[in-house]
């Protein structure tokens, strides 16, 4: 992986700096059984994941439910501790930093949560919820907090009166805006959005997505956007990482993934996206079988039992992530020399 990558996002801004990089990230959950609670097997939720995020871009992580997307997001900011691997943020590995140092880093690494109903403490007013990050770090004097809270409420499209209200007085979309405001309180660089719109009505989804996009421009934010919804990802992301069973299947720019998906799994996923054009011929790739258990993944390529292009080598050798000339990466034996 080159340290400097030149690419363009949709506004034509040239970006080159890698903000965050994951190397060989693994998270195994032990499964304990019996009287002595011995570890009998491990659920490989995230298995050898490597990717990077450029400053200012939006990286989408897509995959079926249970493929380890959310776990990945939590590993990156250490809400979960990784079993193995490195997360390099601004040039240093943050998986082994001390507690206090990590607390300082949290100012820059924030998260927007999936469920707007359980991510806000029901007994605190919105003002108290938004005040907490400021109180935790004491970055500004106390008499300025209120002003800052009101400013951010304005930014996320809520009125000043919200400050005295409780979360249950708001709709799902409004609650998600409160969650976004909370993530913004400390002035973060990177926001991990864990399915931020999947719990919302479709009519509200685009509003929240547009808000996130506005915020990205306004504050020069970098996003890691976790989603299972390809149309949402298409709307929002610059580059897309496709995950299957805890592993990277393909990393491409949005354009090339949607026009020319390389991996058979990506092809199957994209063929399932409904098209607004009724004349377009539908050739859906229907995957057979179920997603295998991550506690006992198939040998070789994890996708081989369901792959329409399965070869003999796929059953034995796990394909490495291979970088193509256009800066894309795919883990599939079809593309090895």
């Amino acid at each position: 992986m080159p340290l400097l990558v030149i690419s363009e996002n949709e506004w034509g801004v040239c970006m080159s700096e890698i903000l965050l990089e994951a190397k060989g990230l693994k998270k195994y959950f032990p499964m304990k059984k019996g009287f002595l609670r011995r570890t009998v097997s491990q659920v490989k939720a995230v298995d050898d994941l490597s990717f990077h995020v450029l400053k200012g871009e939006t990286l989408g992580i897509v995959g079926e439910s249970g493929c380890g997307k959310s776990t990945t997001g939590r590993l990156l900011i250490r809400l979960l501790e990784a079993t193995e691997g490195e997360v390099i943020y601004k040039g240093r590995n943050i998986l082994h930093t001390q507690k206090e140092e990590m607390r300082e880093l949290r100012k820059e690494l924030q998260m927007v949560f999936q469920d707007p109903y359980s991510s806000l403490n029901p007994r605190l007013t919105v003002g108290q919820i938004l005040e907490e990050p400021l109180a935790n770090y004491q970055l500004s004097p106390k008499n300025e907090w209120r002003e800052k809270i009101l400013e951010l409420l304005q930014v996320v499209g809520l009125g000043e009166q919200a400050i005295h209200r409780y979360p249950h007085e708001f709709s799902g979309g409004q609650r998600q805006r409160i969650g976004i405001a909370r993530a913004l309180m400390l002035g973060p660089e990177l926001i991990i959005a864990d399915e931020p719109v999947s719990a919302l009505d479709v009519s509200i989804q685009s509003q929240v997505l547009n808000l996130l996009k506005d915020l990205q421009q306004r504050y020069a934010l970098t996003f890691i956007f976790i989603s299972h919804d390809l149309s949402v990802v298409n709307h929002f992301c610059d580059r897309i990482l496709v995950m299957y069973l805890g592993r990277v299947v393909e990393i491409s720019s949005k354009k090339s993934l949607f026009e020319r998906p390389l991996h058979p799994y990506s092809q199957a996923l994209l063929s399932a996206v409904p098209s607004p054009d009724p004349k377009r011929k539908k050739d859906r790739i229907i995957l057979t079988g179920d997603v295998p258990s991550p506690s006992n993944p198939p040998s070789g390529c994890a996708f081989h039992p369901r792959c329409p292009a399965c070869m003999d080598i796929c059953k034995q050798v796990r394909p490495a992530l291979r970088h193509t000339a256009d800066g894309e990466a795919v883990a599939c034996h079809l593309y090895s020399e």
Binding site: I77, L79, R106, M111, F113, S119, N136, G179, A183, L186
Partner: peptide, 17 residues
């Protein structure tokens, strides 16, 4: 198990708090 506990960790709230 509520997400607001995780959220509190994410915004740097100390365990005791």
């Amino acid at each position: 198990e509520k997400q607001y506990i995780e959220a509190a960790r994410a915004i740097g709230t100390k365990e005791s708090k």
